[in-house]
Design a binder for these strands. Structure first.
Lengths: 347, 347
DNA sequence: TATATTTACGCAACCGGTTGTGTAAATATA
DNA sequence: TATATTTACACAACCGGTTGCGTAAATATA
């Protein structure tokens, strides 16, 4: 069948079609499209013209098979519909796109099993690299080991795993927590509760530690009754606040592990007519867009989500170009963003 | 090299490695892994055992090349970090995952050129289907035509294109707008402004039309001075509100094309100490999580974002199984969600 | 016992690019 | 003029699975 016929029938146009039309071999066409020097100028021109005329789209699959590079980066996040994660992905995508990479995104839905399955899928899909924020259930990291074994760049962000050495991008959770708790103390708070994330996750541990150390620095005893293991969701912020109120625990501030939880806390307190920050000050972590919507606006620790994505993708590109034995651990700075939800002193 | 050696060296284990080890042909191994009836029970068992022992991962690329199916769905959204889009994607991913499909997500960043490029990339990547919400710049749809030509299922959602016949999933924007404007009228509003989206987008047109028809039904003249072309972003809601206030246009309600805009409106009004809903009622469209955070909570039209994703992926699956000449146009119902931002009557 | 059928597997082509090697013709150098 | 080099292209192997077809041996049927 002629290339003309195939084109009209919406058949896939391949190198062979172009080769047949020009009476050259497909290797010549392949090289001509790459502007290889060993192909004559006229031939090269003719090939490019035909390719354009018939809207030739190279089959990336075939190319990948031989080149062993799919030009794709796999990304696994616990949940896509959180502003933090979707913004990180936007950062990854931005860098990847400019470097000619596609991005395959998977959600673990905070489920360990699902994380294992999608990581296998991405391994089979031969992604050139993997960027991950692990699920809150994940303790065993074996499913990631294979990427390291096969020298596929592996970069963790935000939720860093324990017990596996690899590249990572995170923020200084300890310092962020320390600063925001210190800020609460400066505002006169003395009984500061902390709603933590799942404690198998390093960032939750680090924020907790920052909280404790800030208290100790200011000679405020750390009271385990003020530490509630919570989670990352607004709903968990709501239920934990209700628990705290039923427990009749007296507090003058709540430091939530992240903004969605802080929002849940504030909504619950407001519903019970507890004044923020007068009765209880509330602070979070992340600087979600919602932080400026709630009344009073939420004091929080701003994380550069987009930049985290950019940094992760940059590490990927570095490792692809020159794979190295050493790991890159990047820790970005946070920014204490003070708003009304924590301001108890008159100014 | 023996399979044992290759395994230890972290080399890729292939069908051939297993075949050599068992002294059978690779076609036998391939069939054994598929539990093909023509392969003996013992051989099948031995193959599976070896595959497991050496953690054999089939090369999906090689398989795709022959089968002409990559088991991936491409998704193009304008922007990922909007709750609506990330939730739709979650819905798509949910269905896709269960059916054994991966999802490649791309952002157009509301740029026509970028949309063209990513659609070409996805075409080269041989996605089995494409689900799209077009960018606000997009007028020309030629880049999508190729998917139709090649019988690759193409499904639009939310932002439906004009001038191209294809599958689509949307909500009844007209009806949603009509109902919410009617609600405002019932609350006694007479000078209702509308902040529209870009008017080349069908949904913006439909919501505008719903707005106009609701006014007409209740014998309120449509006043072009009350219609502001705005956009989909919170920032645009802020600037447009500022414009309206400088224009000294007198209104008693604002119907924003979507919740982010409505939030921008409310924040601006609150900043100017304009009482909501007493002075000006505000309503949106989408039911973002933020709608319940702002004070007063935002009256809005709830769109089933997750279900939209599910519906789009379901259409894809249907078309993959039995490609048909006809298109599926699914229109989901919206839900008027009344909160305090629009309640002007005492109850 | 002779023929038909089933079982179990190998061979080789195929998917669509990519690239190392070979070679004839054209040009350059000795 | 004889040899060396460059130019421009073809051939074929290759990437790693998949599948149609062929066939010998084992079993079933007549």
């Amino acid at each position: 069948m002629s290339i003309e016929d195939r084109y009209k029938l919406n058949k896939e146009i391949t190198l062979i079609d172009i080769a047949n039309e020009l009476n050259v071999s497909k290797s010549t066409v392949s090289r001509a499209l790459q502007n290889h020097h060993s192909i004559g100028a006229e031939t090269t021109k003719a090939v490019h013209e035909l390719a354009k005329k018939y809207n030739y789209q190279p089959n990336a699959i075939a190319s990948s098979l031989f080149k062993k590079s799919t030009k794709t980066i796999g990304v696994i996040v616990p949940i896509l519909s959180h502003y933090f994660f979707s913004t990180v992905i936007a950062g990854i995508e931005d860098v990847a796109y400019k470097a000619g990479y596609k991005v395959i995104i998977c959600q673990s839905h905070e489920l360990y099993e699902r994380e294992v399955i999608v990581s296998k899928t991405l391994l089979s899909a031969k992604v050139d690299g993997l960027i991950v924020s692990v699920s809150k259930e994940t303790v065993n990291m074996d499913h990631f080991q294979q990427f390291l074994d096969k020298n596929i760049p592996l970069i963790f962000f935000d939720r860093l795993p324990t017990g596996i050495q690899s590249n990572s991008v995170s923020v200084d959770d300890y310092e962020g927590a320390f600063k925001i708790v210190e800020h609460l103390i400066e505002q006169g708070c003395k009984r500061i509760a902390h709603f933590t994330g799942p404690l198998n996750i390093a960032l939750a541990q680090n924020r907790l530690q920052g909280y404790k150390d800030a208290l100790r620095k200011h000679h405020i005893p750390v009271n385990d009754e003020l530490i509630y293991e919570c989670g990352f969701e607004r709903t968990q912020g709501i239920t934990t606040t209700e628990k705290l109120l039923t427990d009749q625990v007296s507090v003058d501030a709540i430091f939530a592990v992240c903004d969605p939880v802080a929002i849940g806390v504030m909504l619950t307190l407001k519903q019970k007519s507890i004044k923020i920050p007068h009765d209880i000050a509330v602070v979070g972590f992340n600087d979600d867009p919602t932080a400026t919507v709630i009344d009073p606006p939420l004091t929080t620790v701003a994380q550069p989500a987009f930049e985290i994505g950019v940094a992760a993708a940059d590490i990927f590109l570095k490792q692809v170009i020159g794979p190295s034995r050493s790991y890159i651990k990047e820790v970005l700075k946070t920014n204490l963003t003070i708003r009304q939800s924590s301001l108890r002193k008159n100014r």
